[in-house]
Simulated scan of single mutants.
Amino acid sequence: MITYLGIIAVGMIVRQVDRWQFSPNRGRHRPGTLREVMSLQRERINNVTPLLLLAGHWVELAGWCLIAAETGPWGWAAAAMAGAVKMRHLQEVSHFAVHGVLTRSSRLGTVLSEVAVHLPLGFVPVPIRRQRHVREHHPNATVVGLDPNLGDLHQAGLLPGVRRLRFALALVFPLTPAGFAFTMHSIAANLRTSAAPWWRLAALLAVPAVLGWTVGWPAAVAVFVVPRLLLYPQLSWMSLLVEHTWFDAETVTGPPAAVEAARCLRLYPQNLPLALVARATWLPYGDLFHYAHSAHPSVRWNYLPALERHLTPPHFTPDGLAFGPNTVARRHHGALDALADTGRQPLPGSAEAPEPGAVPDTRTWLVRK
């Protein structure tokens, strides 16, 4: 067991090389303005440390596989949660490759994301993700009929007038039978977006097959299959829920910061312990700072906290996701009730209201970033 924990520690140490390289605290002057941040980012961006970053996550996954292979149900459960967290980390790292700021070479960033994230996890090809996220979601966030993520939320049942039980189930949609079926359909649709879907399917199946052959099927199921099909989708879904005030965002014009302040939110602004837990698990690599990212999408995650300090806070700063008076869930439910009272409904044929029985090409919240 000590050896396996040591392997996980090695993976974590390897990842720190990239963090040290881009640390805003390294050097005599800490960047604060956008110009200073972009200058420092251009100076430090490289093609080596991102490779170490991705490799470190996979080394950690290997360590958890070895732990799962040597333990019983409690070890499997811990390894499954760790596997889901690692998949969220990989998703978010590749998100910045989609924006072209992971590596100095954008082409290398695409290759690394394909090999280390998209292929083994069954995501769409990186260019398609870039089209949907950068060109469709970012400029149209919360806009009816244009933002694909808003359509995903409605597909899960978050519609005007939704009843409390249906709303509660929508918060854990990936864990429901309907959500699980949709995840399976979405993975199949992701594979079909490629000109050669058979080798993307082979890459997806190769990971659990290799794990099962080398360390045993309990490890493959606990660390890869269950996280990929159930736990990781739930973490990604929770992340999507806390990105925007989806159903009552204000429409404003002006500079990017003003536009995003009117439709973004900032979770845990006054709760450092919960913020640290979120950054380490389900809101990693700048996801907690989605408002700053939306305002400055070309900035690497390392510098988003520094930029956030110079931005006017967004219009909604909740204390939590689901429990308490000032939460994201309460805000979303209240907004949907208000839409029902005004008689507004999703537009037929729009991204908000898919045709009955239709399955989208991909589930954007699984690879939205």
Rank of each mutant, 00 (worst) to 15 (best):
Q41I: 02
R166M: 04
L288Y: 05
T110G: 10
L52K: 07
E243P: 05
G334H: 12
C264N: 13
R26T: 05
T49A: 14
P314K: 02
L240G: 13
N302T: 10
P50E: 04
M1A: 12
T193K: 10
H154R: 14
S239V: 03
D319S: 13
V10P: 05
G254H: 10
H137A: 08
R26E: 01
F224R: 08
A156E: 05
H137N: 08
P354T: 00
V225C: 15
P348V: 05
N46H: 06
H290K: 02
A170C: 03
A358T: 06
A257Q: 09
A116E: 06
S294R: 12
R368L: 15
S105N: 14
L66P: 00
L34N: 04
G212P: 03
P360G: 04
W246P: 01
R164V: 14
V48N: 00
N149K: 08
H99D: 06
G254Q: 07
A257I: 00
S106Y: 09
C65A: 14
D337A: 15
E36V: 01
G83W: 08
W246G: 05
A82Q: 11
T49I: 06
L276S: 01
V223C: 15
R35Y: 01
P313N: 08
A9I: 06
L347N: 05
L34S: 07
R135D: 11
L121F: 15
F289M: 06
W217G: 00
S39W: 01
E136M: 11
R132T: 09
A69G: 02
A68K: 06
H137V: 06
W58E: 10
A116W: 13
S236M: 10
R26F: 07
F316L: 12
G334N: 14
E114P: 03
R107C: 01
R166F: 02
P354L: 13
H95P: 01
L108H: 10
P125M: 07
I2K: 04
L146T: 06
I2T: 13
L102C: 06
L304S: 03
